Computed example of a mutant assay.
Amino acid sequence: MNPYLLEPAHVQHDEYLGTVAAEHDITIHGDDLYEVVGLDRDKWTILGIEFYDGTGPQHGSVDVYAIDREAHDVHSYDRLREIADVDGALPVTHFAVHGVRPEQISQRVFKRYKVQLRSASTADVQLRVEAQGDLQLD
């Protein structure tokens, strides 16, 4: 396999671009991400997670990007930064996770999960909120 850089999220027609934030739910003892995806926490450190969902035959997917701690002698945040500073990137393994849907991760693992999508044509422009409203869907 040829190494490649993990790029920002992309779909066929990038009409909306955005950011996401999430936090683990430690107050009610949410499920451990490593257990949910089946990855050994002592061997691997998850550095990225990717959710995909859409219409058609594909019914959602979860991918994780993790560094092999032993192979790269990573036992601290400082060591991660050192590798990134020297190499310009972190060497990770891409794992396709089977048997779990994207919403299961957010429901089981994260206390809070927020996605913000912006129209691609104005993604680099600040939006100033000057009014508020409500939409009621039945």
Rank of each mutant, 00 (worst) to 15 (best):
A123D: 13
D25M: 02
L90T: 02
P102V: 00
Q136Y: 09
E35T: 08
G30H: 08
R118M: 12
R79S: 10
R112H: 10
D134T: 14
D124M: 12
W44L: 02
A21R: 11
D124V: 05
I67P: 00
E35F: 04
L33V: 13
R69Y: 06
F95R: 10
L5H: 06
E23A: 11
G133R: 06
L17E: 06
V92P: 00
D31H: 11
A66D: 02
H13N: 13
M1K: 15
M1D: 09
A66N: 04
V36Q: 07
K111E: 13
E23G: 09
H75I: 01
G56D: 11
Q107S: 05
G48V: 07
D73W: 02
A22L: 04
D14A: 15
A89F: 15
A9C: 10
D25A: 03
D78W: 14
G56P: 10
S61F: 06
H98W: 03
H13A: 13
R41D: 04
A71E: 15
L39S: 02
E82Y: 09
A123C: 08
L90F: 01
A84S: 14
Q104L: 05
Q126Y: 05
D25K: 03
Q12C: 03
L80F: 11
V129C: 03
R41T: 01
S61Y: 04
A84R: 15
E130I: 06
D32E: 07
V92I: 03
H24S: 04
E50H: 10
A123T: 05
I28W: 01
S76V: 07
R81A: 14
I67G: 00
A84D: 10
L90A: 01
L17A: 08
T122P: 03
V109F: 02
L47Q: 04
G48R: 11
A22Y: 08
T19Y: 07
G60I: 06
G54M: 13
L5S: 03
Y113W: 11
S119G: 07
V64L: 00
P102T: 01
K114P: 00
D68E: 05
D87S: 13
H24G: 01
G54Y: 09
Q58D: 11
Y16F: 09
W44I: 00
P3L: 05
R112Y: 08
T122S: 08
V11A: 03
I83V: 11
Y52V: 06
A84M: 11
G60M: 02
P57V: 12
Q136S: 11
E82C: 09
D134Y: 10
Q12W: 05
Q132Y: 06
T27L: 03
Y77C: 05
L127T: 15
Q58M: 15
S61T: 15
T122R: 14
H94D: 07
I26P: 00
S106T: 12
I46C: 05
H29V: 05
T122F: 03
H72P: 08
E70F: 05
